[in-house]
Amino acid sequence: MSAGTIRSLLMGDKQADRVVPPTGFTARLTLFVSGAMAFLAVFALALSLASGRLADRWADELARSATLRINAPADQMADQTMMALTILRQTPGVAEARALTAEEQTALLSPWFGPNLPIDTLPVPQLIEVTETGEGYDQAGLRLRLSAEVPGAVLDDHTRWREPLVAAANSLRRLALVSILLIGGATAAMITLAANAALAANAQVIEVLRLVGAKDRFIAGAFVRRFTLRALLGASVGVVLGMGGVLLLPEASQEGGFLTGLGFRGAAWLLPLAVPIMGAAVAFAATWAAAHRTLKELT
């Protein structure tokens, strides 16, 4: 199908549209369905983008950090921490090593123990946050040196729990993308059903048009235009509502953890605007195919 054909199918004039009788009820159903589908598509899109961001962040930031945990009797804690920090600062490939303050450790633990527990009375290990440079450090060498000089130190490079998290975020993203495809497919199916119903209901009209010398393009155009515009309008309303819904989601925050921050960021806000256009394109193709199937059976 050439660009000219598509243009002439979509343009058409008011008078040509009148040859197909107006259908109030099915028109509203098509509007509703494409609106609902667009609304869902916006959320699937937000989910896919957010899980993508999450996966990237975990894969990226956490890969370049590690935690050193020091378990030592209370009187040796400060010495061992000092020692570990010194070793870490001497290790090539470590960009930064920083012992967490007591307050920071309390903040980390309070969600689990509650705010009222006096954590400083517990034998809490000291944590040291290690940030790598781009090249990274020699893990085996560092472990060996630590075990010799700081017996209470355990190096955790996060791989153990980072990998399943990244995998989970990635499969969430895949799921969201599959949902978008399914939404598109379901919209196509629904529009095809509606278009077939409209074509069947107007079989007489189509026959008369054909008898007075209408080309297939004219007849198909009357239906294609109608359904494309309905899908475009419905999907636009759906997208506006969907974006409003996403806007109302809570902001990303420390307390909310990774479940917040599901919305769009920056230029990604433009992405949902493509949904009505895609919806209209799907409706165009579905109606065009349905009309051609019907017309082929007429002389």
Binding site: V19, V208, G213
Partner: peptide, 19 residues
């Protein structure tokens, strides 16, 4: 064979419209 939802004048002009 008319289009029942259109007035007579538009039915008569239908061949002009479709062409």
């Amino acid at each position: 064979r008319f289009l029942d939802h259109l007035p007579l004048s538009e039915n008569i002009a239908l061949p002009l419209l479709v062409s």
